[in-house]
């Protein structure tokens, strides 16, 4: 087990290194000049732009920039954001908790919801309830994520005015509220993005959960147990559930990229200044260090997700280690 763990972790590191290099090159070899966005106007001479390029090392060969960057990253320094004019580390320190909050809540809810639906479906595979729920799930699974976010915003915020249109919390009053008011205000701002993200991912969870449950319930040992008079409820609760939940969680983590992509659109539409939003904004500003670090971060998340999924599977099923 330890050997597998070490190998798998090394491999994950390799993957991160590969993606990092790739993203660094994709960003830095792109045509165009990152200096300029903040330095336009006829009063800016070429000499000034050149000065700034030199300041950020952009006038050096890409290979040299790469080596410098890797060295910095190895020391935990992600560089300096051109567009925000502060260290990328600070930008991330603000954005990561926000993304974790939004995604974490959406994840919890979508697992709760998705698993409940999955169990309802698996009770009678291919029964009418299963089929109808399946269709609804498939429909939700087919909704364009950005479109759903737009529609939710349009309906619940712009039309019905039930919830604020976006942002973390009230732009002004938040800091002056009492803690319970603050909590309420934050929750109000969380509702729509969390709702959207939950709808999007609970469809995925439910589809997996139903499948896993059906497969466990149709296994020989379970059939035997049921034949021996174990009630369906008890079977699900005591055996099937546990056996089906693990693979569902695993599959979900293995595909965390799906979730990450969905959250990019949701963050964008609801002005939620998390990682997805920060990175997409940085792309528009050609903020090379921030874009590169953003892609690095996303990749690390995805790789970690896959790693966790594999380790969980390995812990659960010793045969996998032999693979």
């Amino acid at each position: 087990m330890r050997r597998y763990l070490v190998l798998r972790a090394l491999q994950a590191l390799g993957v991160v290194a590969f993606i990092t290099t790739l993203s660094f090159m994709v960003v830095h070899l792109a045509p165009g000049d990152p200096i300029g966005s903040s330095l336009q106007g006829p009063n800016v001479t070429e000499a000034i732009r050149q000065h700034w390029r030199a300041e950020y090392g952009l006038d050096r060969p890409v290979s040299e920039q790469y080596v410098r960057w890797v060295r910095l990253v190895a020391h935990g320094d992600l560089g300096f954001s051109f567009s925000q004019r502060r260290p990328v580390r600070d930008v991330f320190a603000d954005a990561i908790p926000r993304t974790l909050l939004l995604s974490g809540m959406a994840l919890l809810l979508s697992f709760a919801f998705g698993i409940a639906v999955g169990v309802l479906q698996a009770e009678q595979p291919n029964g009418s309830r299963d089929r109808w729920l399946g269709r609804v799930l498939l429909l939700l699974y087919s909704v364009p994520d950005f479109w759903l976010a737009l529609m939710v915003l349009l309906l619940f915020s712009l039309r019905l005015r039930l919830f604020p249109p976006g942002g973390l919390h009230d732009a002004v009053l938040y800091d002056y509220m009492t803690p319970p008011q603050q909590l309420l205000d934050s929750l109000k701002h969380l509702v729509l993005p969390v709702l959207t993200l939950t709808v999007l991912s609970s469809a995925v969870v439910a589809r997996h959960q139903r499948g896993e449950l059906v497969s466990v319930l149709s296994s020989d040992w379970m059939r035997t147990a049921l034949a021996k008079g174990l009630s369906w409820r008890a079977a699900v609760r005591r055996h099937a559930f546990r056996n089906a939940l693990l693979p569902t969680i695993t599959i979900f983590f293995a595909n965390i990229a799906v979730f990450a992509s969905g959250s990019i659109f949701v963050e964008k539409v609801f002005s939620w200044p998390g990682m997805g939003y920060v990175t997409v904004t940085a792309v528009a500003a050609r903020d090379y260090p921030l874009v590169t670090a953003g892609v690095l971060f996303m990749s690390v998340i995805v790789v970690t997700g896959a790693l966790v999924a594999d380790l969980v599977m390995a812990a659960a099923d010793p045969r996998i280690r032999l693979r």
Partner: peptide
């Protein structure tokens, strides 16, 4: 007493804040 710049991620979001009364 106060001047607050409420920073929205894009043009549309900024306008929305104005019309929603948040700005």
């Amino acid at each position: 007493d106060r001047v607050v710049f409420s920073i929205a991620p894009d043009f549309n979001a900024a306008v929305t804040r104005f019309f929603a009364g948040d700005a």
